[in-house]
């Protein structure tokens, strides 16, 4: 929208003269989507992981559709931008938002949310998933999830996270709930602060995003005990998935990941949805996207449309329960 604002304002003023008799402008938009630039709202500040992924997706998407303008609207987790999208209004038929775990976790963490995280939105598709990895310091006495759980039931162990309500934090809380252990959460501000504490052994474990810890697993400074996805990751083929490694310890259903997907306002035009999903299919099958994924230890997203909605719904339920048990629910 901000693109060519000047000319838009100018044409708007000109149009306003003509539009008095021609109120057909509003009807025209249905048959030719997109009739304007697409705005992709990133609910976090520029330069973060969500921003980086969004810009890459936007870059590839605009080769298929039309200009995609990325806009950062950080604030209160991701809830400020999400709330604005939910309110809709002018331009919302060309507005997308890159949703991430914050979308579902934020619903539990932030009080009096003025929107319904599922009902108020149209779900385009899940684009990228980044698995989390359960890591312990390289010189830690624990070599398997089983050993760790046994120890954590005996004594208070601690886990680090880049901040309260992050997928890394919630993965830890979920682990704590399912295994009935006494893990203590030590919050940091960003992975940059959290990592040194883990590397030096000040905290005992973390459930960090793959790209953050991958180089340290390679160099042996960290030991990976499990990945949080149901199947092993191609980056760490020797590391078992949590569901397998934690069998018998209540972890049979454990599954978390940092997912990223596009959502829109609930009144998003049907035609736009179809075109957008087709364009995304093309983008995600493309070589560029496939080459981009491994740089973030990421996997292509799988769920589309209503399946994506169901996925978000189940995530919402999962984190709401976890937040309740961790006394985070507002």
């Amino acid at each position: 929208m901000m693109k060519l604002m000047k000319s838009r304002v100018k044409t708007k003023i000109l149009c306003s003269l003509a539009a008095v008799s021609l109120s057909l402008g509003g009807l025209a938009q249905a048959d030719e989507w997109p009739e304007d630039n697409i705005r992709l709202v990133v609910p976090y500040s520029a330069g973060g992981t969500t921003d980086l992924l969004s810009r890459k997706v936007a870059d590839l998407l605009q080769k298929e559709l039309t200009t995609v303008v990325v806009e950062n609207r950080p604030g209160a987790g991701s809830t400020v931008a999400t709330g604005q999208l939910a309110r809709g209004g002018r331009g919302s038929d060309h507005m997308l938002l890159m949703a991430s775990p914050g979308h579902t976790i934020g619903a539990s963490l932030y009080p009096n949310l003025r929107y319904d995280p599922v009902a108020d939105f149209a779900f385009v598709r899940n684009v990228i998933n980044i698995p989390n990895v359960m890591v312990v310091p390289g010189d830690s006495p624990y070599n398997t999830v089983a050993e760790f759980v046994e120890a954590a039931r005996e004594q208070e162990l601690s886990f680090s996270s880049p901040g309260i309500g992050s997928s890394v934090h919630m993965s830890g809380e979920l682990f704590k709930n399912l295994t009935q252990t006494k893990l203590v959460h030590v919050p940091f501000r960003g992975s940059g602060e959290a990592l040194p504490a883990l590397l030096s052994g000040d905290v005992d474990v973390a459930f960090e995003n793959m790209p953050t810890v991958y180089p340290h697993i390679q160099s042996g400074k960290l030991k990976a005990l499990a990945v949080t996805t149901p199947t092993a990751s191609e980056f760490l083929p020797d590391v078992p998935p949590m569901q397998e490694a934690g069998k018998g310890y209540g972890l049979e259903t454990y599954e978390t990941s940092a997912w990223f997907g596009l959502i829109a306002h609930k009144s998003f035009p049907e035609e736009g949805m179809v075109k957008l999903q087709a364009a995304l299919d093309k983008v995600m099958a493309g070589e560029d996207f496939q080459k981009f994924l491994p740089q973030f230890g990421a996997e292509a997203g799988t769920v589309v449309g209503d399946d994506f909605r169901d996925f978000v719904q189940s995530e919402l339920k999962k984190w709401s329960d976890v937040a309740e048990k961790a006394n985070l629910k507002r």
């Binding site: 009080p111 901040g163 309260i164 006394n327 985070l328």
Partner: peptide
């Protein structure tokens, strides 16, 4: 702001 440890307001 939100408390960093407990998430309370």
């Amino acid at each position: 702001g939100l408390d960093a440890v407990y998430g309370t307001q």
